[in-house]
């Protein structure tokens, strides 16, 4: 464990909690892409299948359970409890254009052609594009609630910190995983224009609104 990975995990945890609290407290999922949340639930499900087969640490197990629990709770709040506030018209990204290519790629490019490894690879590739429906929705509505921008900032920051973690691990431990690194770079790059808007607008107290 190193400082980049720890702050990365905490940033990821913060994002998940911020979103869950936002929906729960405001009793509304307006502006939130349910499709992205389903993709994240799928990412955690396919990545953490080893939850019960290999024990790494209490921290690792607890965080995995929290991530999976919050992901499904968020999907439940969006599609069941606060379904009336779900903005389906603007959440129109065709996720099959993500899942199918990612599924194909994970079968073609992986470290080991075993079910668990292919599912892990699928989750890594999927996570790198899972935020697209949410970013697409914001571009369609032309704006985002400030709390939603904080959620997105923490979520984008987490994988950016993981990039530093991989540099650290390569330098000090001689380990690196090209699949995770390439997907992590793609994932972080997808947030760049949002990061720019967040820093230039939200941090200056303005509302995030895109030139429609």
């Amino acid at each position: 464990m190193n400082i980049f990975r720890l702050t990365g995990d905490l940033s990821h945890l913060a994002a998940i909690i911020i979103l869950l609290l936002k929906i729960w407290k405001s009793r509304s999922c307006a502006g939130i892409s349910g499709k992205s949340q389903i993709l994240f639930a799928l990412v955690f499900t396919t990545r953490y299948l080893d939850l019960f087969t290999s024990f790494i640490s209490l921290y690792n197990t607890c965080m995995k359970l929290i991530y999976i629990g919050c992901a499904y709770a968020t999907v439940y709040l969006i599609y069941a409890k606060f379904r009336a506030t779900y903005d389906g018209n603007h959440d129109s990204f065709r996720v099959e254009f993500l899942v199918v290519p990612v599924g194909g790629l994970s079968v073609l490019i992986n470290h080991d052609f075993s079910p668990l490894e292919i599912l892990w690879t699928f989750s890594i590739y999927l996570e790198s594009v899972a935020i697209l429906p949410q970013l697409f929705m914001i571009s369609k509505t032309g704006e985002a609630e400030t709390i939603t921008t904080h959620y997105l900032f923490c979520l984008g920051l987490y994988r950016a910190l993981y990039l530093f973690n991989w540099i650290w691990r390569f330098y000090f431990e001689g380990f690196f995983d090209m699949i995770a690194i390439v997907a992590g770079v793609v994932q972080t790059v997808l947030y760049c224009d949002f990061f720019y808007l967040y820093v230039t607008k939200v941090l200056k107290g303005k509302k995030l609104s895109l030139p429609a």
Partner: peptide
């Protein structure tokens, strides 16, 4: 194997 090492990440 070395790659398996990274599976200690979330």
């Amino acid at each position: 194997d070395e790659e398996g090492k990274l599976k200690d990440e979330l």
